[in-house]
Amino acid sequence: MAQYLLSIVQPVGEVPPPEDLEPVMAQLAALNEEMQAAGAWVFAAALHQPEASTVVRADGDGVLVTDGPYAEAKEFVGGFDVIEAEDLDQALVWAGKLARVLGGLPVEVRPVAQTF
């Protein structure tokens, strides 16, 4: 089975209030349970907003550390799932279910080339 990264793309901005977010999180938990039962789920995580990031770059013999995202953008990867699927078509089915749970947020599907 191949692994696929399902990246959840969301707009930069305020986190929805709990009354809006809680039903989505419950549906997301149910989808994760469905993927686990099907043997597709490997790992999932939510990420903080881009301003919480730190960028590290090689700089000669040292490193340069800066606050904030690498690039300014209106959207960012807000979370991700790593799944196992027989092929891209099966991965796209899971991505479609994820996009529906997330109210239509885009989900980028990318095959994992290699694990270390």
Rank of each mutant, 00 (worst) to 15 (best):
Q3N: 09
Q3S: 13
L5F: 15
L6R: 14
L6D: 13
S7A: 14
S7D: 09
Q10F: 01
P11M: 03
V12M: 06
E22W: 08
E22K: 05
P23I: 08
V24C: 02
M25Y: 11
A26T: 14
A30G: 08
L31E: 10
L31H: 08
M35E: 05
M35R: 04
M35K: 01
A40K: 11
F43L: 10
A45H: 09
P50E: 13
S53P: 01
S53H: 03
V56K: 03
A58W: 06
G60A: 00
D61K: 09
G62R: 01
G62W: 02
V63A: 12
T66D: 10
D67Q: 02
Y70K: 02
Y70E: 07
Y70H: 14
E75R: 04
G78H: 14
G79M: 06
I83Q: 05
A85C: 10
A85I: 09
E86R: 13
Q90E: 15
V93I: 11
W94P: 11
A95W: 03
K97D: 04
L98W: 12
L98P: 07
L98A: 11
A99Q: 14
L102R: 10
L102I: 02
G104L: 06
V107N: 10
E108D: 14
V109M: 03
P111C: 05
A113L: 14
Q114H: 11
Q114Y: 05
